[in-house]
């Protein structure tokens, strides 16, 4: 019995699972990517583009799938899952490398002196208790003096010497110092910008002193003209006035003027609305002036409640 016919038809139905190429395909299973480095066959490309592309794609997918099936698998509810290896292709970063942090003052010093960084453990060996204790934090070694039930007092200590209080204050001072240095490092890392100068109390104080110094310098009888100059004393510079350019388009100026006018109008309305001027029929101010014969509301009130005769004489003289 000749089965070659059947075999041939079967082979035609199921194309071979192997891919024959001059240069083998690059398969990166980690990214599920296949790269074909072979040059394009010009004849098949020109004659039938669609078929050429399809055969290229088939080869690629075939090699990817065959390499997928060689991978170790893990069973799951949805059937076996292949475990992908880490990708081989090096993709470029999407973002630029982060900038290195500016060194702190200590790091600068250590680099200059060649001091190596030592990592301290979070735990420390306690000889007396014969166990590892926290360096800081809960039951920390740095709080030992504060927490132990009996503490040695130096011989020449005061009567009200409290060793626990002293130890606590020392610790708090260390924390405060560290925090201050940290803030200083942050400020230095920010650079000498105006915002830092505004928030930094030291800079603010500096500004205040400069201000009071400059006002003191012009607070003499000659406004500082004939005072003795100290060495290295600089001339006081005032704030320079700044004006718009003369050559700018008149259109801008017009718009600014119109905006100013409308603002002035609304301001006038607001100020007018502020003091309630009654119902508008009677001019209250004028009515008071008329009734009091020009002396004002207070005088009128005093007169109506039986005021002094002295006032009346004054009014007559007028």
């Amino acid at each position: 019995m000749d089965v070659s016919n059947i075999l041939a038809s079967h082979a035609a139905k199921y194309q071979s699972v192997t891919v024959e190429k001059e240069t083998s395909l690059d398969v990166d299973v980690g990214y599920l990517t296949v790269v074909d480095p072979n040059p394009i066959d010009e004849d098949s490309y020109k004659s039938n583009l669609e078929e050429h592309l399809q055969s290229l794609a088939r080869d690629g997918i075939q090699s990817l799938l065959s390499s997928l099936f060689t991978l170790p698998t893990k069973s799951s509810d949805d059937g076996p899952l292949a475990q992908l290896p880490p990708p081989k292709i090096q993709l470029p970063r999407a973002k630029p490398l982060p900038k290195p942090k500016p060194p702190t003052k200590w790091e600068q010093f250590a680099a200059a002196k060649g001091i190596q960084k030592k990592r301290k453990d979070r735990k420390e060996w306690d000889e007396e208790r014969q166990e590892w204790v926290n360096r800081w934090g809960k039951d920390g070694k740095n709080k030992q003096t504060e927490e132990q039930w009996i503490t040695e007092v130096p011989l020449n200590a005061d009567v009200d010497y409290d060793p626990r209080k002293v130890a606590r204050e020392e610790r708090k001072a260390r924390v405060a110092k560290n925090e201050k240095q940290r803030q200083g490092n942050l400020a230095r890392a920010q650079g000498p910008s105006s915002s830092v100068a505004d928030t930094n109390p030291r800079e603010q104080r500096k500004k205040e002193i400069t201000k009071s110094l400059s006002s003191a310098r012009i607070s003499t009888a000659s406004m500082g003209r004939f005072d003795k100059k100290l060495e290295g004393e600089k001339k006081i510079r005032g704030v320079k006035r700044k004006f718009d350019a003369n050559e700018q388009p008149v259109e801008h100026e017009k718009n600014a003027s119109l905006a100013l006018l409308s603002k002035m109008e609304s301001d006038a309305k607001k100020t007018r609305a502020a003091p309630p001027s009654g119902d508008g029929v009677v001019n209250v101010r004028k009515a008071v002036r008329f009734a009091s014969k020009g002396q004002g509301g207070i005088a009128l009130g005093r007169e109506s409640s039986g005021g002094s005769t002295k006032r009346k004489q004054g009014a007559k003289r007028r």
Binding site: F243, D244, N246, E253, A256, S257, L258, L260, L261, M264
Partner: peptide, 30 residues
């Protein structure tokens, strides 16, 4: 010669408004 600052414009406009009122717009926007 320079354009007026905002304060100066305001002073000028208040003075002019006292005489010509809202017609000041016709001087600015000709």
């Amino acid at each position: 010669m320079r354009p007026l600052t905002e304060d100066e414009s305001k002073t000028l406009f208040t003075k002019l408004t006292n005489y010509i009122g809202k017609n000041l717009i016709h001087l600015i926007d000709r």
